[in-house]
């Protein structure tokens, strides 16, 4: 298991339709955190049909890259709510009292927290700092 890495992303607020059809440059993970808001990790540019869309650089998140086995062993037992069944999928909520997001893919899980909470995540979950 590796130490967390700073995530560079774009935060996009737009209409649900425009977000459904958005194009991002680069190797991107799109977290659709609400129907009118997305965080595109790794994106440097977003193409949207919505001229009123708000696109801002988002650099306050860090992510732990976990294998499924690591996720099951270390993190999953702290999650007190049902995780989605489909893959890939976004899950977000309180884990051990901290707001976390998970990008759950077929073989990896990206665990995302705000940079300011890293020491708490490390303390409470026992992941590397």
């Amino acid at each position: 298991m590796r130490a967390p890495e700073r995530l560079w992303a774009l935060r996009v607020v737009s209409t649900p339709e425009a977000l459904d059809h958005a194009h991002y440059e680069g190797d991107v993970i799109v977290l659709r955190i609400a129907n009118d808001e997305a965080i595109a990790i790794g994106a440097v540019h977003a193409e949207l049909t919505d001229e009123h869309a708000i696109v801002e650089v988002e650099s306050t998140f860090v992510g732990w890259d976990l294998s499924l086995a690591e996720f099951d062993e270390i993190v999953h037992r702290h999650v007190e709510w049902p995780l989605p069944a489909e893959r890939p999928a976004l899950a977000q909520g309180l884990v051990a009292g901290l707001p976390l997001k998970f990008w759950i893919d077929h073989d990896r899980v990206l665990m995302i927290s705000s940079n300011g909470l890293v020491h708490e995540v490390v303390d409470r979950l026992g992941v590397p700092a």
């Binding site: 955190i33 609400a34 129907n35 007190e80 709510w81 049902p82 989605p84 899950a91 977000q92 909520g93 309180l94």
Partner: peptide, 11 residues
């Protein structure tokens, strides 16, 4: 509606 069923402490 976005995230699913959650304990009220998240809100």
């Amino acid at each position: 509606p976005n995230c699913g069923p959650r304990p009220v402490e998240e809100f």
